[in-house]
Simulated assay, not measured.
Amino acid sequence: MSEPPTPADGAGRDARRVDQHELTVVERWIDDRANRLLREAPDGGARAKAVEFLVFGAKQAWACIFGAAMLAVIVAARLWYPDDVWLARNDALVVAAIVIQVVMIVTRLETGRELWVIVLFHVVGTGMELFKTGVGSWEYDGGGVLHLGAVPLYTGFMYAAVGSYMVRVYRLFDLRFDRYPRVWLTTIIAAGIYVNFFSQHFIVDLRWVLLASVLVVFTRTMMHFRVFRRTHRMPVLVAFLLVACFIWIAENVGTITGAWLYPNQEDGWQLVPLTKLVSWFLLMMISVVMVTWVYPPKRPDRLPT
Rank of each mutant, 00 (worst) to 15 (best):
L215D: 03
D174V: 02
V103I: 15
T187F: 12
V195G: 03
T221F: 14
S287Y: 03
F177H: 11
V135G: 08
R229W: 05
Y180Q: 02
Q270H: 12
A46E: 12
D301T: 12
A96T: 01
V238P: 06
H147W: 03
S287L: 11
D9Q: 05
E266A: 08
R33V: 01
L109W: 14
N252H: 13
G149L: 07
I256W: 14
A160W: 01
F177R: 05
F218T: 00
V169F: 04
L215T: 07
V103K: 01
N264L: 06
L109R: 13
A239Y: 09
D31C: 10
F56D: 06
L115T: 11
P7F: 09
G156T: 10
E114V: 01
G156R: 01
P297V: 10
H122S: 04
Q60H: 08
F225G: 10
E110W: 05
A212M: 10
P300G: 10
T24L: 10
M223S: 04
R16W: 10
L87W: 09
S199Q: 12
L241H: 11
R233A: 10
D14C: 11
L87A: 12
Q101S: 13
Q101D: 08
G136S: 11
E110M: 02
E129H: 01
W86K: 01
D84V: 12
Y154D: 04
V294F: 09
P297D: 10
M223R: 03
A150W: 02
P7Y: 07
W248F: 14
L87H: 07
S2W: 06
F66Y: 13
P297N: 11
P304S: 09
A50D: 08
E3T: 14
V183M: 11
E110Q: 13
A11H: 09
A160C: 06
V94M: 04
F121E: 02
F240M: 07
M290Q: 06
V51Q: 07
F218D: 06
F131K: 02
W293T: 00
M234T: 10
R179C: 01
R299Y: 09
P235Y: 06
V204I: 09
L282C: 08
T257D: 00
H21M: 05
W29D: 08
A34C: 14
S279Q: 07
R168P: 00
G134A: 05
Y81C: 09
V289D: 15
